[in-house]
Design a protein around this nucleic acid. Structure first.
Lengths: 190, 190, 190, 190
DNA sequence: TATGAATGAGGTTTCATTCAT
DNA sequence: CATGAATGAAACCTCATTCAT
């Protein structure tokens, strides 16, 4: 069993699945069943471990979305895939987005990434062209993108709140989220 | 100038406007221009200060929404007001929601509040009756509520990310958000 | 109601009756029902308040013992009175002795008092002369004094421990202590 | 040199030999010649260190007394041993008893220990049977126990006071205490 | 005389990190 | 490769005390 990889996986789960973004090195070490110093040995510092697993998670997501966006299928099929892929991914690590919000957005860690995402430009262009064709309702494509991601992400990252508010158990809520895949599609395309 | 109130306001801004949820007592004291111990003098501990300002912010929001929901106006007008009020409020302290996500949702702080919100039930009932009348498209009212809040909140709490992705300045983004008020209404009621 | 006197009495009870030698000014103020700053106003500092009430308690004790020692009665009567008076006094503020032990003995606060107690010398002289007369068993009078005070004080300051060890309620233990008055006398004089 | 053990020993001496019950972690660290945080590393908190060394000291005492009490020797020999052992032990850490008085007795830390000491019961029974045999003067055995421990402990824990009162140097007082071993025996058995 | 506000000293604890093996 | 020991930098909190009415 590769300890380095094991620590990374454990950390990823603690941070982005369990949502314990402020887990200490001790907590991670305990959960992974290794000595705390080992974390420093492999990753130099807690922050570097964090950054590493965060970047890996982002990378995985980006790859999947790129695959969809650059696939040669009609737009509507692409949109459907995108919803499927994105919602599945975000369900895997719901707190990765939370992290985006609280940590990255407030500090300006984002500023590091310089170039605008090519995949994003590609997708926006397709949206624009669909609007011109009349297959999508006309509006600023940015709104389209925002709507899309809002409708997908927010109910997932706010799951605990909504489950509480509407008194829903895990399975019921999971079913609700599954329904949303079709629902989101309909809202955006009708 | 009342220092107690001033510390509270400063803290609220640091926590929920600037998004520095982990601000130390020293940072808060410095920003407020007071001696650090004064924070303990008034609020006993950092945590109690935090809880206090958080609860106050939640309370303010709740009151505003209640006013809208219990107002005697036609549903569509009510929905319009609700969008107006909620988006304005969330713009005031965007990171209050972030806090909800990362801290409250992951731990089970939510469990404290026992009863389901009466205002929420009222609103859901109205949604249901509009669906029966045919003025809203039929679906699970929970989806309606989720859609509504997703479309409003997510673009605001993700503002820094979107501004970066689409390379937009503050004003442009603010205009975009203003546009959304009508847009969200249309999406839900089309 | 004289607040200065009231604070003093309250402090004395907290310190030497309840045994809370480390009571804070706040605790004392609360118990006395006054503002904490008032304590500083009257007594300058916590330490000075402490010293004051301690000295007063010591003074009271000393006066009572002096009265007995300098009284013109036969030695055996004097000894009986002394036991009566001392045990009653120590029951009033059992933790005053504890304080002696932990605080005064370890630091050298005692060094301040310069002259040997005249009353003590008087008493020791009388013990010596009783020993010469044969009414008391011969030994170093210091041992006599130590025995006397040990037998009286220790069971009182250790009351909570003994009550626990022998599983005795308050009243039973009080009765036991009352019995000791005669007992101590017998042990020393038999 | 094992630092953990060394810290414990140092703390024990500071607390129960020197009588500085309120020694700070810094003082202990300085005295032990270690970094202050090391105390937390090994013992988690100052309180836990304190409890640990206190319990160890109590345990040592208890073991020694148990050995004496459960030894198969005539009662009078046992009593002599008990005096020898107890006085030696209490001389080692005189302030351990002080702690008992001020801290434990006033709060109800004692309540934790549930069962009555078996050794104590054994000893009391033996005392009772000696009284019936007529080798000890008849009285409540509790008084016998109290007398015994009072005569041994009090002059030791009050040593600084008595040395001052009678103007005795360390050696003279030590000699006096040594004399007391026989003296206490005589008083109880005469 | 009395008090609420404000301060500063001093203590404890947590935690990431470094050291030495 | 792995670990236990050790360190130092923050952070927090409590409290006595002082200040200004």
């Amino acid at each position: 069993m590769n300890k380095e990889e094991h620590i990374k996986t454990t950390a990823k789960d603690i941070f982005f699945l369990k949502g314990n973004l402020h887990a200490t090195t001790q907590e991670i070490a305990d959960e992974a069943g290794v000595n705390r110093s080992l974390i420093n040995y492999y990753f130099r510092s807690r922050d570097q471990l964090f950054e590493l697993v965060y970047n890996e998670a982002v990378e995985t997501m980006r790859n999947q979305l790129d695959n969809v966006i650059y696939s040669k299928v009609p737009f509507m099929d692409k949109l459907e895939s995108l919803i499927e892929v994105y919602m599945n991914e975000i369900l895997k690590y719901p707190y990765k987005e939370s992290f985006l919000i609280t940590e990255i957005c407030s500090k300006n860690i984002l500023l590091k990434e310089k170039k605008k995402s090519h995949a994003l430009i590609t997708f926006v262009d397709e949206v624009k062209s669909e609007m011109e064709k009349g297959t999508l309702k006309k509006s600023d494509p940015i709104h389209f993108v925002m709507n899309l991601f809002s409708l997908m992400a927010y109910p997932i990252i706010m799951a605990p709140l909504y489950r509480k508010l509407f008194d829903l158990n895990k399975q019921t809520y999971a079913d609700l989220l599954k329904e949303r895949k079709a629902l989101v599609f309909r809202i955006l395309c009708d």
